[in-house]
């Protein structure tokens, strides 16, 4: 699971009002190189919850994603490289995603987050 996917997921347990962002528990990370595409980054930027992305990057050990960001930074190639790496190249292979409201743990195994709810959570 990459951080762009993390940025899409929320805890959907019945009654939970603030299920986003899920915090990340890391057991194993992998880095896989992928093609750098600045246009894609510019396109996805407005759809991201930046604070959640920043916090997620920190939890996978990347401290070079600024907390505040200005669209003008999308013209800076050094920034785009860091953005690209954090968003698309770091994979959480083993670990968990944790609901900020209930503490419910959604395990991540072989890179696949298990977001299925139990019967009493629907």
């Amino acid at each position: 699971m990459r951080l762009l996917t993390h940025n899409m997921l929320t805890c959907n347990i019945k009654g939970v009002t603030k299920g986003f962002p899920l915090s990340i528990e890391v057991q194993k990370l992998e880095t896989k190189e992928t093609d750098f595409n600045p246009d894609f980054l510019k396109n996805i930027f407005p759809k991201l919850e930046w604070k959640a992305f920043h916090d997620a990057a920190l939890s996978v050990g990347l401290n070079d994603i600024p907390e505040q960001v200005d669209p003008v930074m999308l013209e800076d190639s050094e920034f785009l490289q860091k953005f690209h790496h954090a968003l698309l190249e770091v994979h959480l292979e083993e670990g968990a995603l944790i609901c900020p409201e209930t503490g419910r743990r959604f395990p991540v195994s072989k890179g696949v987050p298990n977001m299925l709810l139990h019967e009493d959570e629907v």
């Binding site: 899409m8 805890c11 959907n12 890179g111």
Partner: peptide
Amino acid sequence: VEMELVLDNIQDLSWRGPVV
């Protein structure tokens, strides 16, 4: 091929909104 996989139920999908 690269593709992200998520184990989830479409009936109560854990996505925060229109992101794709």
